[in-house]
Design a protein around this nucleic acid. Sequence first.
DNA 1: TATTGTTATACTCTATAACTATA
DNA 2: TATAGTTATAGAGTATAACAATA
Lengths: 141, 141
Amino acid sequence: MGDIDLRAFTPYLLAMAAETTSLGFQSTYKAQHGMLRTEWRVLFHLGQYGPLTAKTICDRARLHKTKVSRAVAALEAKRFLTRSEDPQDRRSDVLELTASGQKVFRALTEEAARFDAALMERFSAEERRILRQCLTRLAQL
Amino acid sequence: MGDIDLRAFTPYLLAMAAETTSLGFQSTYKAQHGMLRTEWRVLFHLGQYGPLTAKTICDRARLHKTKVSRAVAALEAKRFLTRSEDPQDRRSDVLELTASGQKVFRALTEEAARFDAALMERFSAEERRILRQCLTRLAQL
DNA sequence: TATTGTTATACTCTATAACTATA
DNA sequence: TATAGTTATAGAGTATAACAATA
């Protein structure tokens, strides 16, 4: 060996690309709305799919229940969501975005779409298709 | 908006792919050699490019001096590198891998090459080329 | 004055175990 | 017994400021 360059090592390249691209969007949800990454992911799922229990968010977002629990508490403190008792299972609460939470969701999804479009602008349609396909498969290992 | 899926958001996809692919290789340097990610990166640069000062590693690896400082101390404690005074600048030490450090470097680079080959096996030559090119550009933003 | 490197501090992120209340 | 959710704790990652020694 000895002829490998770290810049040719896929996990390294992925980590660098993820770090670089995340930083830009991070400022949108962090600086503008005081949210952490997990909070934004939980807010996104509630905005996109409607009222859900924490368990459902865990399954769909592939997040551990402790992360969701803390993100939900933080979003509740910011008045971005409310809880109501789940009639089918009293261990769970159904979580729902407030009007304020929905407003932030819309602002963030719009910002995300703009951000992604700006990122992808530098690639051809073919490159974008292959990039997305490769990343999706690597993420699902 | 509202029609964006988080799985179509490039920074999210990159983060997922990076996390998934990193976990596998992490066990190699962590479990087998007790190293953290930054230590492996510093060790790699010393193994690949020979004796360097901390400053040079900072520049080449794009790592902050505090991270390099702590990684160097950890690698020194493991007897993977030694310091010697830089004749040109007494603020710096020249860092050099020990025989033990070189052995670990060779083992890890071989393992990295195998790991990468196994990852890329599922893609065509064209897909690999485009993936690498896209990631390199995204990492350099 | 500026740079190299170290130490201190804080915050984010990840992972796990232990606990509660319900099922 | 098992599951939904909470709390506590520790380790890892990131970022910044302050400092000592040297340039």
